[in-house]
Design a protein around this nucleic acid. Structure first.
Lengths: 234, 234
DNA sequence: ACGGGGATGATTGCGTACAATCCTCCGAGA
DNA sequence: TCTCGGAGGATTGTACGCAATCATCCCCGT
């Protein structure tokens, strides 16, 4: 997953990051020519990237009408997180019976990064949110990898690691981050000792708590939520 | 989901069907130029189709090396079906609390088609397997639609409705088909009466029985399985 | 006989040109 | 005023060509 297939890969990564971070907000039209100019390449790699993002569900497109960033209704957030809880707890259960020492080391690595990112630093807010998101991604990614289930990994990587996760970290305050950190360690210990059912329950709880924070915030700030999750009506 | 985006759609459908039905066996290289000539169009729509299939997980490709039909090891079959059981039972549970009368009518429609396809007809074997597969797809699709969960539907449609399902139907004998038919009706009734947990258990059992038939057949006929599931070594 | 270093053919990556389609908006007629 | 229709621009869909990259195989030196 490195710097191969130069231009297409670059276009894909950049468009994806822009969507995940919310710089391309839901509902925004993604016009091939404009994006191509923005990244200084031709429409071809942009087109391929858009098709891949469409298959991932980040983008919706209709024939001859082009692509728009998929918008997620507030009601769908709960459903998506319920699905994520289901899949990730399954992954945790499998990981408990399949994880190697290297897998555990990678989980610990992610946990250490997360601990470091919790501390407010001199860097900007966006940088801190990125660091938190990346560390969180590593913890969960390491557990998923330890599950040794390619299809499950694909599903989780593609359709669940969506803009919502990034947005969620914007909303987390210190105590919520500490709680996530605690759950990461509890899950890690359950996986390490082979207690699958326990790991699954903890993971489910962890994901659902993230959901609750996000949903509560959306409900409390409907105008902000509108801006984040529904298409702007110009 | 009809005949739009003419050439690309056509290429996508045809390549996909060829993979699902096993005419392009796992491990087979998918060379853009050859496929383009086969369907009498240019490489462009073929390329896009391959990227979409790659995102779906049906095809694996490496930069500058091209695409091959993804091969599934015998051990992975059990894992994939376990995942499918998890997702489809979740769908059944949601459907039990969300299904409308129209949803139930569509489920019944699929069940009727399945009943008709069970009866051996004068048509060829491939046609019958296609009819069974299509009817089965409709039953499960109607339940998934009734769950009103877009992401879940995408996951199931894209990464689980894989070649395996089609291959499985080749292996089903009469009594196994009757059993599937029975389970479809039991699930339908549980959904209709709003018994979510029951619908989920029945669906899980139904999917796992399909897995067992397929796995048993692969184990019993390793050479056939090799041919079906691993790349030919020329 | 065996391993390394190109040359060569096959294939993908990407840019560009043109055709097909859709959207907007304006004007004519009722 | 409202509706129908059509012109024009914007955008996507497809074909094609060339450059970049990879795989194979042959030749050469050891």
């Amino acid at each position: 997953m490195t710097e191969v297939r130069g231009n297409t890969r670059a276009a894909y990564e950049q468009i994806r990051q822009a969507i995940v971070e919310g710089r391309y907000p839901p509902g925004r039209r993604l016009i091939e020519q404009r994006i191509a100019e923005e990244f200084e390449l031709s429409r071809t790699p942009v087109r391929e990237s858009l098709r891949m993002l469409e298959a991932e569900g980040l983008v919706h497109s209709e024939p001859n009408r082009g692509a728009v960033v998929r918008s997620v209704s507030v009601e769908e957030v709960a459903d998506i997180y319920a699905l994520r809880a289901l899949l990730e707890s399954f992954a945790a259960e499998l990981a408990a019976s399949r994880a190697t020492d290297e897998d555990l080391a990678r989980i610990d690595e992610g946990i250490a990064l997360f601990a470091a990112a919790i501390e407010p630093s001199a860097r900007g807010t966006l940088e801190r949110v990125r660091a938190l998101s990346e560390a969180n991604r590593r913890v969960h990614g390491a557990i998923i990898d330890a599950a040794r289930h390619d299809q499950l990994g694909q599903l989780l990587a593609r359709t669940v690691e969506v803009p919502l996760v990034f947005q969620a970290f914007r909303q987390f305050d210190r105590s919520e981050l500490e709680r996530s950190h605690l759950f990461h360690r509890l899950i890690r210990d359950a996986v390490a000792s082979g207690e699958g059912a326990r790991a699954a329950r903890l993971m489910s709880e962890h994901v659902l708590q993230g959901r609750d924070v996000l949903v509560a915030h959306i409900r409390a700030h409907p105008q902000g939520a509108e801006q984040l999750f529904t298409p702007p009506t110009p």
